[in-house]
């Protein structure tokens, strides 16, 4: 039996290659830091339940995308059906920070007519000595785009839970206030109370058999 959840949110995780997208998600969903991980080709999938209020559980479906620029024409197809996104950069890699606005533009132009609630994540904050992006400038950039900013470390498990839970709460509020609506044919938000009705295969065989007997 699946655990009961109120809503399912589909989140997409984007950002330059090797900023640590997969490691962050793994820390969140598996609770451990993977010392070795292979590069994501295409997209990987994760899921986890989050309790945002006592008794209110949200199922997160997390799409982990390939970071290499070449794959963008593939991954851009996945924006449309996402309600939330974590946009990662590596605080020790200035270029990954400079690319943040490219990622946002890319996402904005492919998510129409929907929109994505983004969270800016400065990752690998355990590597303070190698920092190339200050917290202030990252916060400023996030503010300019109306996003929250959080610094995380998958290795030391810093703010990982917070990043996902805060984003989930923000989306939940927007769903509750009606700013985000559940729509047919859109996978971003799904209600958890869809009853398990008649199997379509049964219907098919019922209808199809009649004329042949």
């Amino acid at each position: 039996m699946e655990t009961i959840w109120l809503y399912q949110f589909r989140l997409i995780v984007i950002g330059d290659s090797t900023v640590g997208k997969s490691c962050l998600i793994r820390r969140f969903t598996e609770g451990r830091f993977a010392q070795v991980s292979d590069p994501t080709v295409g997209v990987d999938f994760f899921s986890r339940l989050v309790e945002i209020e006592p008794g209110k559980r949200i199922k997160l479906q997390i799409w982990d995308t390939a970071g290499q620029e070449r794959f963008r024409s593939i991954t851009r197809a996945y924006y449309r059906n996402s309600v939330g996104g974590l946009l990662l950069f590596d605080i020790t890699n200035r270029r990954s920070f400079q690319n943040v606005h490219n990622w946002l533009e890319e996402a904005q132009s492919h998510v129409q007519p929907h929109s994505i609630v983004f969270l800016l994540v400065g990752h690998k904050c355990d590597l303070e000595a190698q920092r190339q992006v200050t917290q202030q400038e990252a916060e400023k950039l996030a503010g300019a785009y109306g996003m929250r900013y959080v610094e995380t470390s998958a290795r030391d498990a810093i703010n990982v839970e917070k990043a996902f839970v805060d984003l989930t709460r923000d989306i939940f509020e927007l769903v509750r206030s009606g700013d985000i609506k559940i729509q047919d044919g859109w996978e971003g938000v799904k209600s958890g109370f869809v009853p398990n009705t008649v199997h379509s295969s049964e219907e098919v065989t019922k209808g199809g058999r009649q004329c042949f007997c």
């Binding site: 290659s17 090797t18 070795v36 991980s37 292979d38 590069p39 290499q68």
Partner: peptide, 12 residues
């Protein structure tokens, strides 16, 4: 990227 990916190729 090649440099970074080589170490992530069949790491086991």
């Amino acid at each position: 990227l090649i440099k970074l990916d080589i170490s992530r190729t069949f790491p086991q």
